[in-house]
Each structure stands twice: as structure tokens, then as C-alpha cells.
């Protein structure tokens, strides 16, 4: 069984968010990069768990990005990916990224493609759904559990106000979120092994962007907190009613 896990590089959750070049570029100065938490903690670790149960599973990793994504891909290999592909395209347009992944997936006969629910930088939650259209394959979003039985997958997914359990056959695409698996730390053996695992670089083939980022802005800071005396909750209720007008 071949699983393709999509890996994205994102700034660490505590990274300072600032912009340069007239607010048109993210300021990468001093930023620590991580694997997008949804990709790492949920899709990748669940793929590894499936492999632990079934040695016939091969975990393929794909990332679309420049050479600076390689440490991230090596970490994903250290966690338990078997081999990796990097498509050398630095576009920020999800449509371009999805088309690059689809081009690889078309040639790969993958039984399942796993993505994270969204990336923590652009928060578009788009790649899984775009792959669904590009590959004409079933897509189940917001998956919180996945079990595979022969050709059938049993998936639980979050819906508004609850959960839904469903079944589908391979091939399929899932976007994964909390519940799917638990975060793991790579061990020394994994880190050593990752150095020699195959990492293939493919040149970019998609160049038509459908969107372009014009500018970034930082939201204005709150004007300052108004402190209310803990013994005067009537005053807080009054402020919420009359000043904030929210209750």
C-alpha cells in the first residue's frame, strides 16, 4: 500500500510575525521552521502507525518548495517516512502547489493521500479539496480517525457540532486533524537512517498563478485592557451591555 503524505514547511508557532519589502514579504529573519503541525502530528504519524501494523505500507512524502525545505523533509523521514519528493516550486498560490502534487500523484498510483487540515501560515485548508478535483478522487475533510481494512477505509470526521463515521474505498484523500494520532519525537536511529533515505528533486512544471499576494498587514493592537474590580461584577455586566454591546 502506497501512502502519499503532503508536508508543508511553516514558521514555528511562536515565530514573530513581521513583514519586509514594503509589507510584501514575510520576514524570515530569525524564524525557526517546522513541519506544519497538522501534517506532522496527524497525517504523518497516522501513516507511520498504519505501517507499523502493515509492513507492506510505503510512506512517500511530498513537499512543494525551495531547497530550504529540505531540513523539514529530513525530519519527516527521520520520523518514519520512507522516501521523499521535493518539487522545486516556491509559489505561494495553493492552486500551483496542488497542481504540482497532482502531477506527481498521477504517476504514482497512491492508495491514499494525506494532508493536514490546514497550514498554520496561510490557513487556506485548500490542498486536499483541490487534489480531489484535480485527481477526481474521493475527499474526506477534517478526519479524526482512520482505519484501513483491505480496500476499505473507515474514517471518522468532524462535522459542525459532532462527528460522522463513514466508509470509502481506496483511493481517497484525507485532511487530518487532532484525534488522528499523537505527536512523536524522532529518535537517533531514525535521524541517522533519514540521511540516506531517497529525496528526489523534481523541477517545477506549473507556473500560472491564479492569485498573488499584494500586501500584508498586522492588525492594530488592542487599545488597552480596561480593568474591572473583582468585587464589582455588576460593572462588568454594564460594560458588556452598554459599552461593548455584546450581551
Amino acid at each position: 500500500m502506497n501512502i502519499l503524505v503532503c508536508i508543508s514547511k511553516t514558521p514555528d508557532t511562536t515565530a514573530k510575525i513581521a513583514f519586509v519589502e514594503g509589507n510584501t514579504k514575510f520576514d524570515e529573519n530569525g524564524v525557526q521552521w517546522i513541519i506544519n503541525p497538522y501534517d506532522e502530528w496527524y497525517s504523518l504519524v497516522r501513516a507511520i502507525e498504519l505501517k507499523e501494523k502493515n509492513p507492506n505500507v510505503i510512506i512517500h512524502l511530498i513537499t512543494v518548495g525551495g531547497a530550504d525545505t529540505e531540513p523539514i523533509i529530513r525530519k519527516a523521514l527521520a520520523l518514519g517516512g520512507d522516501e521523499a519528493i521535493r518539487v522545486n516550486n516556491t509559489s505561494n498560490d495553493s492552486m500551483v502547489v496542488a497542481q504540482e502534487i497532482a502531477a506527481v500523484a498521477k504517476g504514482g498510483a497512491y492508495d491514499m493521500i494525506l494532508t493536514g487540515k490546514e497550514t498554520i501560515d496561510y490557513n487556506s485548508a485548500s490542498i486536499g479539496s483541490m487534489l480531489c478535483a484535480l485527481l477526481d478522487t474521493t475527499f474526506i475533510p477534517n478526519a479524526i480517525s482512520l482505519d484501513v481494512n483491505g480496500n476499505t477505509a473507515i474514517v471518522k470526521r468532524e462535522i459542525e457540532g459532532g462527528e460522522e463515521t463513514c466508509e470509502t474505498n481506496i483511493p481517497f484523500i484525507l485532511s487530518c486533524q487532532k484525534g488522528m494520532a499523537e505527536q512523536r519525537i524522532p529518535n537517533m536511529r531514525g535521524i541517522m537512517a533519514a540521511r540516506t533515505k531517497p529525496l528526489k528533486v523534481l523541477e517545477a512544471t506549473i507556473h500560472n498563478e491564479t492569485t498573488s499576494i499584494q500586501q500584508f498587514d498586522i492588525p492594530p493592537a488592542k487599545s488597552g485592557v480596561k480593568l474591572v474590580d473583582p468585587s464589582n461584577m455588576d460593572e462588568l455586566v454594564r460594560l458588556l451591555k452598554e459599552e461593548a454591546k455584546v450581551i
Binding site: I17, D121, Q215
Partner: peptide, 12 residues
């Protein structure tokens, strides 16, 4: 973008 820490103006 950045989980609410910034805005991006995007041209379609």
C-alpha cells in the same frame, strides 16, 4: 493569515 496574527491582501 498566520492564524489571525496578520492579514494578506490577495489579488485574484
Amino acid at each position: 493569515v498566520f492564524s489571525g496574527k496578520a492579514f494578506a491582501s490577495i489579488k485574484i
